[in-house]
Amino acid sequence: MNFKALTTVVSALSLFLVSSSSEAASTLVAVASNFTKPMTEIAEAFEKSTGHSANLSFGASGKFVAQLENGGPFEVFLSADEKSPKKLAQDGFAVADSQFTYAVGKLVLWSAMPNYVDTQGQILTKGGFKHIALADPKLAPYGAAAVELMQNLSVYDTLQPLFVQGENIAQTQQFISTGNAELGFLALSQVIENGKLANGSGWIVPATKHKPILQDAILLKTGVENPAASALLKFLKSPEALAIIKKYGYDLTEK
């Protein structure tokens, strides 16, 4: 390529970048681990439909709150609970009236082994395993829901000595999928594929057995000026996004 051609390409490219950046923006999003798969898919759809892009960072909701209260750069927060966004708004880090429930989580008792967990979850009373994994109930809503379930089934005291706790729900899955824990509690979204369990065996815990896991999103103060941030929150309520959320086994709030 000669020099002239190169400059043409470079100037054309820079023109393109300049013109596109004036319309399309990018936003930094903190996403609860359990929402990793659907959010990756939603971000792609978001980019296609709006031209904006979303950079996703996954982790435990509690950790994000700590980071955000200490100058974390995220502009949108998709929490695994409704408490964390509320706290951020109260502490002045988020816009209170932007908070809404984007998904209702479903808890699953899952094992990497086929035919290990029965579809009624009776294994919890039968026992026969050495470890049962859950996300730290103090930090993770799915962990807290699992504890509530076990208390309702009156098996908490017998199972508690067998607990192994992941720092977040993704790490909990590692414990189970490597076989180190025979079974454990996860978010349904982590193990579902095309409407059914991708592998292993599981019991989808009926929503009546614990308080609903309301997962709320909120706009952070850092994202108020960014059109991509508010566009993403709006997109989360679009039929396209809702279909993806539903596909991963979440319930939707009744409107």
């Binding site: 435990a60 103090k138 930090l139 192994v164 706790q165 824990a181």
Partner: peptide
């Protein structure tokens, strides 16, 4: 990664600090 955060078995002080920070 290998501990599982079990009191008196694998919950060492560095993990305990991390939990405190995460729980604010």
């Amino acid at each position: 990664m290998v501990g599982g955060n079990i009191p008196n078995k694998t919950r060492v002080v560095s993990v305990q600090i991390y939990n405190h920070v995460e729980a604010l």
